[in-house]
Amino acid sequence: MPFAAWSALLAALTLLVMIALRPAPLPEDLFDQLTGDRSRGRLVFAASGCSSCHSAPEAKPGSAPVLSGGRGFKSPFGTFYAPNVSPGPSGLGFWTDVEIADAILNGVGRGSTHLYPAFPYTAYTHMSQQDAVDLIAYLRTLPPSPAANKSHDIGFPFNIRLGVGAWKLLYLREGWVLDNATSPELERGRYLVEALGHCGECHTPRNFLGALDTSRWLGGAPNPAGEGTIPNITSGGLAWSEDEITTFLKTGFTPTFDSAGGEMVKVIAGLSQLPQSDLEAIAAYLKAVPPID
């Protein structure tokens, strides 16, 4: 084949790959039949731990969260900075509900760009559409922040966002990790742990591409925020009863009256707002996942 033909073939293949990896936006009328409920959205927000990453680093606990972003997350690929997701013009003020949902559910940003999976959309992709519109309705009630977004500090080749499209083909999945949730309580627990709570992001180890190793689901992992280990919370590593787990998620106290520490403090600040039945469902789910030694 002459050189020109090779070049044409290569160009065509590149184009095909680029089309395949291009983000596919959600339909604009997706939420036409749904109405967001702000007070339900507050609970979705608490369960999803949004403020753990997006609140200003110096945020005061107790006051309405200001989601100014700016917090840095170190990773083997570079440092990611949480963006401003407050409702002001520097945040999500100009985004439509469907655009915000596209980011949360599919990791697609405004202007059809792939977002990096430091944002746990591989978990949020399982969020129900109703929870998403409720959450967005709540987000729009929060105080705006003028903070400017910080660019991620990512080296080549991870700074090529089309590569995230390939990563998504491999790791953005529809199915659940625990595929046999045999009761409504286990289904609820699975939804809270695998979708909203994104517990696996810290409690499950990652492979060399930064994707969660679901064969060791919730089996403990190196602390992504620094030193030490995030504990194994399957029954292979955590000997607490369901009642003790529920109490910990509500109060932050362990059965021996040590307290939660590190990132888990913010997680509990959110989870403790949920109804008791939700915390019991999380405990039941943790007892149902395969024990990891």
Partner: peptide, 21 residues
């Protein structure tokens, strides 16, 4: 009062104590 006490324990352990190794 227990809830505020839990908050105080957590506030210090969040910022100043590492997880177990």
């Amino acid at each position: 009062a227990m809830s505020a006490l839990g908050g105080a324990c957590g506030a210090c352990h969040q910022a100043y104590r590492a997880p177990y190794n």
